[in-house]
């Protein structure tokens, strides 16, 4: 029995909690991608860099706050800076839409042209982020590091294994849950949210109902700014901020959005967790879990790791292929917000 509990604690500590936090971050990222796909009708290659941009702005504000002595008690200061980061990122995205994307909408450009346009935006945003904050690893988490440390947990429960809960992990899951709840309430209950769904479903008919496409698009960019900045800041708090890592998040985020069914917000969330859990579980060395469950003589040699951590990208990709083979439109039917 104690062996089982110990195994469970190891599982929670090294698999479940990290995957839950990572999944929340991916889900928020994938929601942004799926919204753009549903309403602007293209996959935004600049999304990873939008996350990096939002995080960069938030970090700069956090530094300023820390400089003048503002803090958020045991929570990271970045959380206080987040709303400002969202606003500035929102303005930047609206500006980008004004200066870049709107022209193509007026031309009724083919979506694939918009994909290429988003590559250009990606280059520029990537350049801006590197220009302003550089390419180094930046750790901007402050406040209390742990809600409960492994040692405290061991003393509390008397178990051999410890469960450490980092503040950022709990924060990530809670913030993501709030953001998702707000988004769903907005899309399903408010007039503007419903008009966004209508626009995604049938653009021409939305126009004939008097829905202003420019307004729908503007609101979409603002929501995307909020989601991307939140996702980016949470990821940065949980791990650290590095411009290149954020660019690389594009693949798991796209995979999550597609696994769930592109254009479907619920799918994006489920997809985020599917990708995160499979990535963590397949690359985790299970030896330590097994050591509490199996008698010594039956323990296998080696780490009992299915695939080396180096191939975590491969996992999201293989999940993607498997899902698409069996459900061509993703787990949830895609292509409508």
């Amino acid at each position: 029995m104690v062996g089982f509990l110990n195994a469970l604690v190891v599982f929670l500590n090294f698999v479940f909690v990290p995957a839950l936090a990572y999944g929340s971050q991916l889900a928020l990222g994938a929601l942004g991608v799926t919204l753009i796909y549903g309403i602007l009708r293209f996959s935004n290659f600049a999304h990873g860099d939008t996350m990096a941009f939002g995080t960069m702005v938030t970090i700069l504000i956090t530094w300023w706050m820390q400089g003048v002595g503002i803090s958020f008690g045991f929570l990271p200061t970045a959380l206080l800076a987040l709303p400002f980061g969202i606003v500035i990122t929102g303005l930047a995205l609206l500006g980008t839409d004004r200066g870049v994307y709107r022209f193509y909408r007026q031309q009724k450009a083919d979506p694939v042209i918009l994909v290429i346009v988003s590559m250009g935006v990606m280059f520029i945003m990537n350049g801006v982020v590197r220009f302003v904050i550089g390419v180094d690893d930046i750790n901007f988490a402050d406040g209390t590091r742990f809600i409960i440390t492994a040692r405290e947990f061991q003393e509390l429960t008397g178990l051999q294994e410890g469960l450490a809960l980092r503040t950022t992990q709990v924060l990530t899951v809670v913030t993501a849950a709030i953001a998702v709840a707000l988004l769903f309430w907005f899309l399903n209950k408010t007039r503007t949210g419903k008009s966004m769904r209508a626009f995604s479903d049938n653009e021409a008919l939305a126009l004939l109902s008097g829905i202003n496409p420019e307004r729908v698009v503007a609101v979409t960019w603002l929501i995307v700014a909020a989601l991307a900045t939140t996702a980016g800041v949470l990821y940065g708090l949980d791990k650290s901020f590095k411009a290149f890592t954020y660019f690389q998040l594009l693949l798991p985020i796209f995979a999550a959005a597609i696994v769930g069914g592109l254009g479907n917000p619920l799918g994006a969330i489920v997809g985020g967790f599917v990708v995160a859990f499979s990535e963590v579980m397949v690359t985790y060395p299970w030896r330590r879990v097994l050591s509490h469950l199996l008698p010594e003589e039956r323990m296998p040699d080696g780490l009992v790791q299915l695939i080396s951590t180096d191939y975590k990208f491969a996992v999201s990709f293989i999940i993607l292929i498997i899902v698409l083979l069996f459900r061509p439109t993703g787990l949830f039917k895609g292509k409508s917000v």
Binding site: V100, I116, V117, I124, N126, G127, V128, F131, V135
Partner: peptide, 18 residues
């Protein structure tokens, strides 16, 4: 930061040509 002008310029060129 001059080194990072590269990506910015490539993006600008792509957008202007498009």
């Amino acid at each position: 930061a001059a080194a990072h002008m590269r990506l910015f310029t490539m993006g600008m060129i792509l957008l202007l040509v498009l």
